[in-house]
Simulated scan of single mutants.
Amino acid sequence: MPVRIDADARRRHIVDATLRLVMTGGLSAATFRKVAAEARLNIGSIRHYFADHETLIVAVATEVGDRMGRRLTRYPVAAAGDRPAAKRHLLRVIEELVPLDDERHREAVVLMEVIAASRLNPAFEPVVRQMAADLRTVLIDALAATGAPDPEHQAVHLAALISGLSLDAVTPHGSAGRATVRAVLEQHVDRL
C-alpha cells in the first residue's frame, strides 16, 4: 500500500526548513538543493509543492505574516471610550510586530529580506504590498480606539517606527536592543 502524505503538513515542513535557511543565510541560501537537504527530502519533493524559488519565498513570507496575524487575534480591540485600555491594546499589538523575542526576531529577519528583495523582484511585490496594507489596517483600527487624531496619518508614522526599530534590531545598522525597542514603543504610545 502506498504511503499517504499530508500535503499541507509537507508544505509547512518545507516552508519551515526554508525559513531556517533564510534566517541564517538570506534568500540566496534558500536554493532548492539546500531546502531539500534542510528538510531531509529530495529536490523533486520540493518542486512538487513549489514551482520555483519565488513561489517558495512568497510562501515563507506569507507564513510569517500569518503567524503574526494569529498572534494579533489574541488581542481584541478595547471597548469604545476606554482610552487607557485602548492604549494598552495598541502597545500589545505593536509589540507583536517587532523583534522582542527569538521568534519575532526570526520573523523580522525574514520579512526584511523579502521586503528588500521586492525592490528588484516583482514576484515578491504583491505579498509585500498585502502585508503593508494589513499592517496599516491593524494600526488604524487600534489607533482609532485610542481616540488619536487622524489615525490614518498616525498609522503611517507608527509603521515607519516599527520598520525602523525592527531594522535596527536585526541588522548591524543599529544597536536597538529589545529593552530599547520596548521603551521607545511605550514612550510613543504614552504620547498619543
Rank of each mutant, 00 (worst) to 15 (best):
A148L: 07
A36P: 10
R83P: 01
D101G: 09
H153K: 12
L165H: 10
V15W: 02
R191I: 02
L91M: 10
L90I: 06
H105E: 14
L111W: 01
P2E: 00
G44W: 02
Q154I: 05
F124P: 12
L139H: 08
H53C: 00
V128T: 14
L97D: 02
R74D: 11
V98S: 06
A116H: 12
A145G: 11
L185A: 04
T55N: 06
H48V: 01
G26N: 14
A17P: 13
V22F: 12
L143C: 12
T73N: 08
Y75C: 01
R11T: 03
P122Q: 10
V189G: 02
A78E: 05
G177E: 10
I94S: 00
S163A: 13
E152W: 10
L185S: 04
I5S: 02
E96Q: 13
A80F: 04
R92G: 00
A117F: 03
R92Y: 10
A7L: 06
R119P: 03
S28C: 02
D52K: 02
H48C: 00
T73D: 13
T24N: 06
V22L: 09
L135A: 04
D82S: 08
A145W: 09
L165D: 06
R104E: 11
L143K: 12
S166M: 08
T55W: 02
I140W: 03
R104I: 04
A132L: 01
R71A: 13
I162N: 05
L41T: 09
H48A: 03
V156K: 11
R70F: 09
V184S: 15
V110E: 04
Q130D: 12
R106S: 14
V35Q: 08
Y75K: 00
G25E: 09
V77E: 07
S45V: 10
A142Y: 05
L158N: 05
H105I: 06
M112I: 04
R71W: 05
Y75I: 07
R178T: 11
E113K: 07
H188C: 03
I115E: 14
P151E: 10
D190H: 10
R104V: 00
D190W: 05
L41M: 15
R11P: 02
V58N: 08
T24K: 10
T62R: 15
A160P: 05
A85P: 01
R88E: 15
M131S: 07
G147R: 02
L91E: 08
V15E: 01
H48Y: 15
G69W: 09
R74K: 07
A179N: 12
L19H: 07
K87S: 04
H53T: 00
A144K: 09
L161S: 11
V184T: 15
A29Q: 11
Y75L: 01
D141H: 02
E38P: 07
V60G: 05
A37T: 11
G81N: 06
G69V: 00
H48D: 00
V189Q: 01
A108L: 13
A179H: 14
T55L: 06
A9M: 08
L120T: 12
L185P: 00
F32V: 01
R12I: 00
A36W: 09
H105D: 12
